[in-house]
Amino acid sequence: MRTARFNPLPGLNLTLGFTIFYLTIIVLLPIAALFLALLDISWSEFWEVATNERAMSAYKLSLGASFIAALLNATFGTLLAWVLVRYRFPGRRFIDGLIDFPFALPTAVAGLTLASMFAANGWLGQFLVPLGIRGAFTQLGVIIALTFVGMPFAVRTLQPVLESFDRGVEEAAASLGSSRLRTFLQVIFPTLFPTIMTGFALSFARALGEYGSIVFISGNIPFQTEIAPQLIVMRLEQYDYVGAIALAMVLLVFSFIVLAAINCLEHWAARFERQ
């Protein structure tokens, strides 16, 4: 260990030792258990249960619904962040506070209340269901719940960047005769884009692992509204550990890919901001 200069503060050994001990017991050991369990499964067995028809349709829904939800979050999240940062209007603080609500609300409650709102006799369902828009116990319901839980990530990622955005650039564009729309599309949006993508990836990652809210709103119909985490629970309830472990491993790999993508995006966004 090298220190750049003399550091008289005590406690490095104690705190770092405890940190590593606690991290190992609580986080690393359980993760290791999953990898160890994988060793007991032969490759062909793994491939069979990880890629059977039901598993494939669960991945497809998990990835597809998470993608659409993240796209909706990036769109509405950008709109909300823009409105909250740039405009002053009555109720602004109230809406700003609402943004964190999906983060603070337990997901089970989110799923419960969204399912009841979009059901045929619910507050929104009574208008939407006659139009053929069914938001409860359908794939659309899955998208709705995933959008709800991911919303704060998109808004809160963009908000601070938008707040520190250098308006001198906009003024320069305007003084050079650029229209407001053109300034937005060619000057503001490209600068914000890496951050919007980070928000997109964060809410995608959140959606990919989500379970609590989906239990209530999806109806859990195999091949139709069953997402990957739900199928893992289903396999566990049948004591099919091999099936559960294989699916969990695939989901874990998806999460790590998204995590790596988020890291790259954050580097990109940070480099962008410096320029």
Partner: peptide, 24 residues
Amino acid sequence: LLLTFIDLPFSISPVVSGLMFILL
């Protein structure tokens, strides 16, 4: 690396975390 490890639980599906404890 330590910081990455500390953030790990955020990127693991809660269902998968539960499964890990069953395997332990």
